[in-house]
């Protein structure tokens, strides 16, 4: 089980940020390695990912679903991905908190990821770091999106 949390300050208000975070186009751009993201139900997306760290690369298929949505405060991201090298299932609780500086939001996240198969049994020591890096990448991309 990988557990990690973090927070990030984004220079948009919560109201502005809320729809952006549900926008499939944005999600596709920001989810690291996302090659395909197709709406397939209420707040449910089918995804295809290609995730890599250096030489280590894996293709995954799965779903991302947003649940427990309380606009514009919080929601839960449910992730399910499977590939030949293993699988990852889990939830990330996302909270949007007003930030003291004007028009800014603090996004807090708390992830619980269950990793299985090959990646768990040969890469356990790297999984935590990998997950963290993916989260960082997500926010980096999000900021880029917002800048444009």
């Amino acid at each position: 089980m990988i557990e990690f949390k973090g927070s990030h300050i984004i220079s948009r208000s919560r109201q502005e940020l809320w729809p952006i975070l549900q926008d499939p186009a944005v999600l596709k751009r920001c989810i690291p390695g996302c090659e395909e993201l197709v709406l397939n139900g209420e707040h449910l997306y089918d995804v295809r990912l290609k995730v890599g760290f250096g030489m280590i690369k894996g293709s995954f298929q799965g779903t991302v679903q947003l649940t427990n949505m309380v606009e514009p405060e919080r929601y839960v991201l449910n992730i399910k991905a499977e590939g030949r090298t293993g699988f990852a299932h889990g939830t990330t609780r996302i909270q949007l908190l007003p930030h003291p500086s004007p028009a800014a939001t603090e996004i807090r996240f708390e992830s619980h990821l269950q990793v299985g198969g090959m990646i768990a049994s040969v890469g356990a020591r790297l999984c935590q770091g990998a997950a963290r890096m993916l989260a960082e990448q997500f926010f980096r991309e999000l900021e880029k999106c917002l800048r444009n």
Binding site: M55, I56, K57, G58, R84, T85, M118, I119, V122, G123
Partner: peptide
């Protein structure tokens, strides 16, 4: 010594 183990496990597949 890093690449070949990854190839063997198919974690890398160049």
């Amino acid at each position: 010594h890093s690449l070949i183990p990854a190839l063997k496990l198919r974690l890398a597949a160049p």
